[in-house]
Design a protein around this nucleic acid. Structure first.
Lengths: 329, 329
DNA sequence: AGACCCAACTTACACGTGTAACCGAAATCG
DNA sequence: CGATTTCGGTTACACGTGTAAGTTGGGTCT
């Protein structure tokens, strides 16, 4: 490795025969600063020839803010929906001149506090609450903080209303004539933050229709264990279950198969996410899907709003959560 | 937003009644620099009281390198394996004092060139080849470049040898007595870089045993379309198929079901990845899995090796790819 | 007692950039 | 024709940090 020295704007200036400031003005299209066409092309040419790229560190240091948005991901099992959301979010932020980077949850080895220091992002998106001290520290460093988690205490949620997801599931089953519902709770403690509000949504939908409260069971991703759950549901006269997500729903399907029950005849099942295996299951799985493109765009809009101190826009939640009807319910 | 000014090391120095350099020495535990216990605690105390956190930009600017490793992800459908790999990679890098951030492929809207400038990473991990110009630019900026993609031309691969994955699939089927194999190719053009070498591995295994070359078909993630593929295979006397991954394998399963064939009686199927739905399928899906923890650790080791100019360590490939036997093959 | 060393600091500079302030010349205006 | 604006730049400073190169004063060795 010859370890060539970094090419700086001074090198460009020297080659173009102008001052370093002129280079900066040309490259940043600074308004209210006039540059003759001749020198402009000379500077651009020199920059291209040298392969100049400005130092992000120096720029960030000088201007005080970068165009990087940092997304802190908890230690979740990351599936296609999260991947899709991140892709859409990245695209949406790019449209606003921002750049998304994601930090996967590293088994809590290092506190998040260390990370945002190391990046100096313009904004941080987090799916976990910060301590007040952390939030204050970030604000004082000029970082716009966006917490995309359903806040228990506060009135409105920033993220996709997970209650609504649960409600849609229940509504679909009730519309099909079911009156006694079950809820298939995930075995993974890490996703509790998602599971709780979804279950709450199912409960709310049942309560609104004066139906009995759904009987919840924790369903492991294992056919025989799931079969036990299915038998328990049958013994309590449950005819349809809402699953936390498609994987749990597939477990319920497998459990029903093992227990010798037919779906949806003996038991109807509805999932969440519409992962690719859902439509390949036997029977094809009815599920609830969220339009991640809209969610990504909304999250991006929330970020830019937070950066400019304005308040977040509304998310047209009702329009983006819909049932994908297949054969399992 | 009161927009409090950033607290700098000068503030800490003032409060502790020492010079700014002393603060830096204390906070960085600079070797060969002696600090009395009294001032050390005074500095530490002042820093804690003010909530001081050093400016990453300034530090990066001064030292020339940051401790951030940037991973560029192409526009792939991101599943649990990728998520698991990233989590393990992040943990492994953290163990080396590095921080991982991931950039999800944003539909090619912005060239990657823009991004590494904006982050000033110590290293970049990419799953796509760079142009020579890009690589040169990054090297000249002091970025260690690691390309984790099977290089066609070169002899050895950096990433997990995908050929080996295919070989393992074929070996398992052959060991079960199958002689005429099929290959279920994914419908998604974006994963071609993974699919090609896996298919090559299957071909190689067949050739080594003097078996006919596998008959490849592109299998969409749709039951009836997959059923067509299954019938084609049956008409060419294929008794077992290797699928590109578990999703495609599930499609084959669904196709066989639709076509009225039994698995593994009429057709054996083996997938790749061991995603959670695999064991929930009917029948439970035999699959090939890769130990992502080892891969993550190896990738991290490769990165630190590249940063210090050394050559990459060997990956014990043979030990980490293994078959998960279930009922489908 | 003088030479010397070492602990414990401080002073001073460099990293690469953005931008406010300044400046000469040419053009415009009253 | 003098005053003033506009054009096309340059000089100079600040951002916050790491660290090499001094600078003390007190102790040690010869």
């Amino acid at each position: 490795m010859p370890d060539t020295k970094r090419v700086t704007s001074a090198d460009v200036a020297r080659l173009a025969g102008v001052s370093r400031a002129t280079v900066s003005y040309v490259l940043n299209d600074t308004p209210r600063q006039t540059i003759s066409a001749g020198t402009r092309t000379r500077v651009l040419d020199a920059a291209a020839r040298l392969g100049y790229s400005p130092s992000a560190a120096a720029r960030t240091l000088r201007t005080g803010r970068s165009d990087v948005v940092l997304c802190l991901l908890p230690d979740w099992p990351i599936g296609p929906e999260v991947g899709s959301l991140l892709g859409n979010l990245s695209a949406a932020l790019t449209r606003h001149g921002l750049t998304l980077v994601v930090h996967p949850g590293s088994r809590g080895e290092r506190p998040v506090a260390e990370l945002w220091k190391a990046i100096t992002p313009a904004a941080v998106i987090s799916y976990t609450e910060f301590t007040d001290a952390e939030a204050a520290a970030m604000r004082s460093a000029g970082v716009a903080v966006v917490v995309a988690v359903p806040r228990r205490g506060r009135g409105r949620e920033l993220a996709v209303p997970q209650e609504l997801v649960g409600r849609r599931q229940a509504e679909h089953l009730v519309a099909a004539g079911h009156t006694r519902l079950g809820y298939a709770y995930p075995d993974d403690q890490r996703v509790r933050f998602f599971a709780e509000p979804r279950l709450a949504g199912v409960r709310a939908a049942c309560a609104a229709r004066r139906l009995p409260t759904p009987v919840g069971l924790t369903v492991p991703l294992d056919p025989s264990a799931a079969a036990d759950c299915v038998r328990r549901w049958q013994s309590t006269e449950v005819t349809a279950v809402c699953a936390y997500n498609d994987e749990v729903a597939l477990a319920v399907l497998a459990g029903a198969r093992t227990a010798g029950l037919s779906v949806p005849g003996d038991l109807a099942v509805i999932g969440v996410d519409d992962i690719p295996p859902a439509r390949l299951a036997a029977p094809p799985l009815t599920t609830v899907t969220t339009d991640q493109a809209v969610v990504g765009a909304h999250l991006a809009a929330t970020v830019v709003a937070a950066m400019s101190g304005r308040s977040a826009p509304e998310l047209p939640a009702a329009d983006i959560v819909r049932v994908v009807p297949r054969d399992s319910a």
